[in-house]
Amino acid sequence: MRRSPFASLLWYLAPVLFALSIFGLWAVVTELGLVKKIFLPPPVDVFVNLWKGMIEGNLLQLTGATLLRMFYGWVLASAAGIFIGTLIGLSETARAWLTPTLELLRPLPASTLLPIGIALFGLNANMLLAVIAFGAIWPVLLATVDGFRFIEPRLKEVAAILGISRFSFAFKFGLPSAAPDILSGMRLSLTACLIITVIGEIVTAQDGLGTAIILAARSYRSVDLFAGVVLLGAVGFLNNALLSALRRALLPWQKT
């Protein structure tokens, strides 16, 4: 489809305009006093406060702590998920025996594991990391197993004819074939990591954005609360952008 220069400019600007119009609507609603400022502060206040919090306060530090925790949990979940998923994926027997149990564990909300984690390991940062990783491992693990299950049968014959070892097969056939699935799983996993990290911080009172948000909410500092929420939204947005870039870099053979 050919578009005129004006139409194509509009096409690129439209998403930005839409996002801005949400903030506009938000500004109008607060300006007209439709909602009390204590519940919904004006967007300008929120962004000014966000800026001040980062420059003067410790918001940047708290965000850093949350991001780091999320990132470590994600790396741990991804590495463990791909490794265990590969072991299970390579063996038809393991797949048949273990998949039902894994499917049973998958939908378990990770936040419910927090009390168990606390009971077993106590209230500390490592426990939280373990729970984050455990909660976020499932999308990666199951995507890896699935990726191995759907390897083109013809390619398995090619591997057999070439006498490729099981180890080589995992690296040269299995993982590349499963890579699109794995990356989709890692994307879901990153979102899960962010959620569990924030909830975990709240439950275990570790310093971070989650704690900052809940403290702001409890003390009716709605400007701080919204600043935290906006920040979390931005983190989620950047995560997605990061994953898209990773996908393009790792799967050059896939046309997007």
Binding site: E152, K172, W253
Partner: peptide, 11 residues
């Protein structure tokens, strides 16, 4: 094989 599209590693 006849189905070269499946017999080659696309990656």
């Amino acid at each position: 094989f006849q189905d070269y599209g499946r017999a080659l590693l696309p990656w």
